[in-house]
Write a protein that binds this DNA or RNA. Sequence first.
RNA 1: GGGGGUGUAGCUCAGUUGGUUAGAGCACGUGCCUGUCACGCACGGGGCCGAGGGUUCGAGUCCCUUCACUCCCGCCA
Length: 594
Amino acid sequence: MSKYRTHTCGELNISNKGQKIVLSGWINKKRDHGNLLFIDLRDNYGLTQCVVDNENKVFKEIEKLSLETVIKISGEVIERNKDTINENLSTGEIEISIINFEILGQTKELPLPVFSDQEYSEEIRLKYRFLDLRRKKIHQNIILRSKVISFIRSEMNNLGFLEFQTPILTSSSPEGARDFLVPSRLNPGKFYALPQAPQQFKQLIMVSGFDRYFQIAPCFRDEDARADRSPGEFYQLDLEMSFVEQQDVFEVVEKLLVKVFKNFSDKKLLFETFPKISYSDAMLKYGSDKPDLRNPLIISDITKLFERDDISFEIFKNLVKKGSIVRSIVTKNTKDKPRSFFDGIDKWAKEHGSSGLAYFTLEKNDKIVGKGPVGKFFSEASLVELMKITNADIGDTVFLSCGKQSDVEKILSIARTRIAEELKIIKEDYFAFCWIVDYPMFEIDEQTKKISFSHNPFSMPQGDIKNLDLTDPLSLKAYQYDIVCNGIELSSGAIRNHVPELMFKLFDIAGYSKKDVEEKFSGMINALSYGAPPHGGIAPGIDRIVMLLADEKNIREVTMFPMNQNAQDLMMNAPSTISDNQLKELNLSIKKKT
RNA sequence: GGGGGUGUAGCUCAGUUGGUUAGAGCACGUGCCUGUCACGCACGGGGCCGAGGGUUCGAGUCCCUUCACUCCCGCCA
């Protein structure tokens, strides 16, 4: 028998009636009636009500204990009266009549309450994370995370994947995010980098002939934080497979994610075979490469309409002549919405950096007309044509945005969400997964006008790889794919380029000489030259999967010890200064701030 | 690097047009209370109103600067 307990605080029930037991835990809540005192004792497993009255000689001592003191209680399991049963507790049919107690851990006055549903500031939560983590919701989130990871491990094993660790101290790579760097003592002036992802290693594992690899991999990127992005580190389910095409990867990931999401959430899946949407379609129909498919609204391009003579909407027509585009969102049966709804959307759009959203509602009396501020500019014939393009009906409203393509995409993407929220047509009880496929291999940097890799430089371009036409690199598509759920990018992956000669050519387009590539990616280029299998993979983000399952909007709610927005650990005081001696050993000196 | 929000008791917040001694709930302390489960009642301690400067007879409140936290943009192969 344990010195500290015979049972946990979530374990006892009516079947233990009459037993002498020992429990240990935290004082979650006290209810003091003067001569009768209730204590809710809490541990990881649950809550048990303990009771003591003034006939007990330790009563006065127990009465003085403050919340969150850790105590050991010995007592007897008593059946509660019918009218005092608490149906919200698994232990609610019994209570412990306290015989004796012992203090195991004293507490100072609490900087934040544990038993409370109140929100409180991040600063205090992160500084006293060990107290914060005692709170119910986040405690359960962390347990969920553990269970999800362990489930994924076992499923990956079942699917024939082997788990390997890859180095944490590795080399800096020129592409991608900013690296975290670690100075080398034995190699003065040189630095390790923490891996942004085990990208090269997992490809090397394939070249080494291990066929199917996975890892719950820590990834380090020195980028600014967002609500769904921790500064510093995050975890990916990193996986890679040999002798596969894109579809083989899709099948494995779909199988896995469907199981995970069915197992750990009550929400339903909108699709069990995830729809595949090309990058260009996604940008057109949703204005984004991470569309939320729970939202039924779809964007249409109606630029061509504005070449018609029977439309007199001169502002848009002139802009179109100068190369602007016009796209629309149609909302179903919104003719009876109050004026304030439409103006609200328009005003909101203006606040978000656009020139607003023009709109009109389709109505039919003798003939079809557009009702609303700009409806009068459209002839009946042009409205019929518009209805054909956008699938709009009488009673629907058409919102219009005109401008530069990237601006229109941006504003309509967020307008799509905003309008759907207003109309309450987002299917909140679902997970809507999709694949975004056919990403362009290259893109043009708006500022430098240089061509760069749009995603991963190691991706395999689509087409005949032996006779690839590289004269128009911007039209080249890659076997590069993202998985998106409810508007959140869960991961990206690719079929890799395992042909060194082709890789040199592609890097050349992005401005890297053969020598650069050999130097920066020596490990991998070298390996690919000694018999590399065709291979590909993906890396779903663990933190974001758990966020979706726990229905949390902030990644810190599913991370045990997160850093704050300035990449500081307020509990451990990281980062911190180091001693002169440490600096000397590392051959480093710190420049004074100017 | 840029933009928005917030900052008042240990915690969560209120504080009117600039006007007496800055309030509430929880927590803490003392007292009463033997069936509560957000127990109840009474009393009490607790404040550099984030920091600095300015306007004013007078600033928690107005102005400027600055710091912290947070959300967003940039960034995230």
